[in-house]
Amino acid sequence: MQGFNMGRYIPPDQEGTTSGNQIHKKGPPGALRKDGTQTVRFEMPFATWCHHCRPHAIIGQGVRFNAKKKKVGYYHSTPIWSFRIKHVTCGGAIEIRTDPQNTAYVVVEGGKARDYGEEKVREGEGGVPILSEAERERRREDAFARLEGKVEEKEVGVGNAKRVEDLYRASERDWEDPWGANRRMRTAFRRERKVRKREEEKVGALKERLGTEMEILGESEGDARRARLVDFAADQGDGDAAAAGDVFERRAPSRVTATSSPRNPATLKESRAEALRQRLVGNTRAAMNPFGKDL
């Protein structure tokens, strides 16, 4: 757009003769200032707790900030860099510095690195451990420790290579014939849908036959075992009573009270359900196993 340069306004009469940064007395991003600082894009190397937030909030690994970068010292000949960021949620400042001695980052102000409970810091997911200076010195002086370290790194490398091969094979298998995989999935879905539809029709017919609107659950193995323990009506010498359905002691059906209206559909439905329940309870007895096991 005419009149703008890198997001800064330039008057038309000065366009082409100067820059927006010079007019507004701003330096370009990343330019080194006179005090030795510069603004860089910094990415959080690990999850960090912000101590300025109340309660303390966590900043996830990989979140990016505009940080003020400054050299604050040396470790032998390696410079130590400081990155000072501003947490946009609370406005608090957090300072993170490089640690060349341990090849890591440390939080020196405004927060604390999240503790993952790991004994050794590892480079990458499933990578080799990052050794401290003492561990490196021990491996230099001790041949057995150096050999054990090489064996451990080799095992990690072999495991990672096998994992990568498995991922490649799984990807090739899944994408070898996507049309066939989609067809198999749709066929299984149609089959299951037909089974569910038949079950719903069976349950609907059972509700209509019993004259109830109660929810009927599907059959389970426990229901089948309990059904085998029920004894329905052995003949007790009264053939007429068995034929009439009076297998056990007849119970008087519950009567509709005078306050309830027999013409009310809800009352009739409840009465039928209660009469059915009493009839089933009166005509049913549980078979007893003398050995204490399910039949």
Rank of each mutant, 00 (worst) to 15 (best):
P129C: 00
E153I: 02
F232N: 02
E200Q: 11
L210S: 00
I96R: 00
T17M: 11
Q236G: 11
N264K: 15
G20V: 03
C50P: 07
L217A: 13
H51G: 06
L147Y: 12
T17D: 05
E125F: 10
E148N: 13
G20W: 05
P79C: 05
R277E: 11
E155L: 11
I10F: 07
L229C: 13
M185E: 10
I58G: 06
M185D: 09
S19N: 07
W49G: 02
E119H: 05
A104I: 06
L276D: 12
E192L: 06
A93L: 09
A287Y: 08
A275K: 12
E152W: 01
L295N: 15
E152K: 02
P265G: 04
R122M: 01
A266V: 09
M44G: 04
G36V: 01
A67P: 02
R193E: 15
G3E: 15
R251N: 14
E208N: 01
T259P: 07
R33S: 08
Q236A: 13
V108Y: 00
L167V: 13
V40M: 09
R114F: 15
H56R: 14
M44R: 06
K293M: 01
T89R: 14
T257A: 11
K34C: 02
R41G: 12
R228T: 04
K70H: 10
H76W: 06
R64I: 04
K197R: 08
M44N: 03
W179N: 03
V156Q: 09
P100K: 01
R277Y: 05
S19C: 12
R198N: 12
W175A: 14
